[in-house]
Design a protein around this nucleic acid. Structure first.
Lengths: 340, 340
DNA sequence: CTGAAAGCGCTAACAT
DNA sequence: ATGTTAGCGCTTTCAG
């Protein structure tokens, strides 16, 4: 049963009217264009009957807009990002945009490919968690007046809109919380990545310790191995070597998960002696035993701000001064950071 | 700096040649079309210089192909699906296709929207984990000769290609493993969903028990609440009520994760007394304490078969008899299913 | 109130 | 060896 997809023209021919009329009805402009009630009804009935689906590729070529946005994050399966994504999707939908999700894995090459892929396919806007080294592609988009909003981290020296949180304050508060709980020897396990949000978290950690007269103890793991055995080895060795540590502050939620596993491997009882807190929350933390404290980012607000900026850029092609939004997070205290 | 995106025509004009020539060079058909080396070099140099990006929307409209595939699964963040997705992406890339990922959440409405969204945008093929009730949309795609391959589950009475695993055998083997480990009172916790793969898993469980003369003990959780507190309550009550249970077989990896949390809440020591096995593996199971046994699906092979079928459908528009592939999984035994 | 027709950027059959 | 040109399916201006 060979069914050539029906086109607007086919419909017009079948009804003996012009494609213009069909197009107007299709786009709900019937009233506006003063097409008679009867004709509108007739066309709509026919559209329904043959279950007509317009060819949006043709429409996009004509209108110059795909009504598609792209949401590119480090890892869409990370609950922090997927929660933001979900809200973005809702807001977009209400504004007649669809959103495509993808993971950069913090890999420049992959991110470049994705940006080109979507830009060539004419998506209308990008919301991006930029991996290190992606400045050039972002600038390229900006020069071509493609709406771009960064989040989670900014790119220094780039005049782009962004929504981030105050990483320094968050890290400082988290560290302070451990200090307040009575921990005295707090280690910081982070990713060895030259990104501003990581630097800020480290600085916040150090600042809190210094105020209380404690000294920092930092382990940096290479990013590319953060999910595989070798990084776990590093964490394991670090913990075994530093017997005096009584608490650990992990710089990201996935580091915490790796770390928790290491701690368990070293000694099943160890987890109950150590104070633990994680930057970024995770569903997993509520399931773990003990439940894990975290510094949570304001997911709803981030998504709302992101879309507010994006929609305004989509509306006014002329872009004024970039919006630079810095939000505050919230400390979520659970069992892992109580004094043992 | 208003930069109108350059078109093929702009380039042709700039170089004083025709768009045909530029198009041929752009598509690497220069040699084939016997365009002189010098001209090819000149055009390529210019393309590079202005960093030309073709408008793929226009190309797609013209060629009728977007070279985009869609991979729709229940939840792309579930490691079972994301692993398959990763391989699919690799194979697609090598064949010059890009793939878009999305989650159906097993929701018909959402899946319908996604199918329409992508079909209207003319994607070239769909790889789908079909939620219950999606038959009509799948048939629609089939009738319109859009390549579709189902996986993880088939739709009874629908003549579609699919790649699934032998759920009955897998469940039977898993149950048998618990029996072999000495457990005598094995419960089965599953999702109350009228889907064939769930029925098969249940049947496999029952078959194994019957062969050994044990009797089944099944809890069915409504799907829509599987991730939220109420389902955990159900699991909790079930476990508390059935004190004699010495092992539990969870029908999916996310059920296992919920279940593990419940078990922990009831009694932190309980997990060490109960035998646990999960259908579908998860990264989480290696991290948990104890590590969790699982019946793992053959991820690589599934992805390869899926793409083999998809690529052949993409090549030969005429579709013959649907390919129906049923694979075997592997039992991965870890700490949780050893005799305690 | 409705229709004719131009054109979005690209490809490829057909000319030359 | 390179150019001319007709569309792909749709929107929208302008005419009637």
């Amino acid at each position: 049963m060979k069914k050539k997809r029906p086109s607007l023209k086919d419909i017009a021919d079948a009804l003996n009217i012009s494609t213009t009329t069909v197009s107007f009805v299709l786009n709900g402009k019937g009233e506006e264009k003063k097409i008679s009630k009867e004709l509108i009804a007739k066309v709509e009935a026919h559209l329904k009957e043959i279950n007509y689906k317009p060819n949006l590729v043709a429409r996009s070529l004509r209108t110059g807009s795909t009504r598609v946005l792209v949401f590119m994050v480090e890892d869409i399966s990370n609950s922090h990002f997927s929660k933001v994504g979900r809200i973005i999707e809702d807001i977009s939908y209400k504004n007649d945009y669809r959103v495509l999700f993808c993971s950069t894995e913090n890999d420049v090459k992959r991110t470049q490919d994705l940006i080109h892929l979507f830009h060539e396919r004419q998506v209308d806007g990008f919301i991006i968690v930029p991996p290190p080294g992606i400045e050039k592609e972002i600038s390229y988009l900006l020069e071509n007046e493609v709406p771009v909003v960064l989040f989670d981290r900014k790119i220094p020296d780039l005049e782009a809109d962004y929504v981030i949180i105050n990483n320094f304050e968050g890290a400082k508060q988290s560290t302070q919380h451990l200090i307040d709980s009575g921990y005295k020897n707090i280690a910081f396990i982070t990713i060895d990545l030259d990104q501003i949000q990581m630097h800020d978290r480290e600085a916040g950690y150090i600042a809190a310790l210094e105020e209380s007269g404690f000294s920092p103890n930092i382990l940096k793991i290479p990013y590319d191995t953060s999910n595989i055995p070798s990084s776990r080895e590093k964490i394991k060795k670090f913990i075994e070597k530093n017997k005096d540590i009584d608490a650990i502050f992990f710089a990201t939620n996935y580091l915490s998960q790796s770390g928790l596993k290491c701690i368990h491997q070293i000694d099943a009882k160890l987890i109950n002696k150590l104070g633990i807190i994680s930057f970024d929350d995770s569903n997993f933390f509520e399931m773990y035993s003990p439940t894990v404290s975290a510094f949570a980012q304001p997911v709803d607000e981030m998504a709302n701000q992101l879309m507010k900026i994006m929609l305004s850029k989509l509306k006014n092609k002329e872009q004024g001064v970039p919006s630079k939004v810095v939000l505050d997070g919230t400390l979520v205290t659970r069992e892992s950071s109580l004094k043992k």
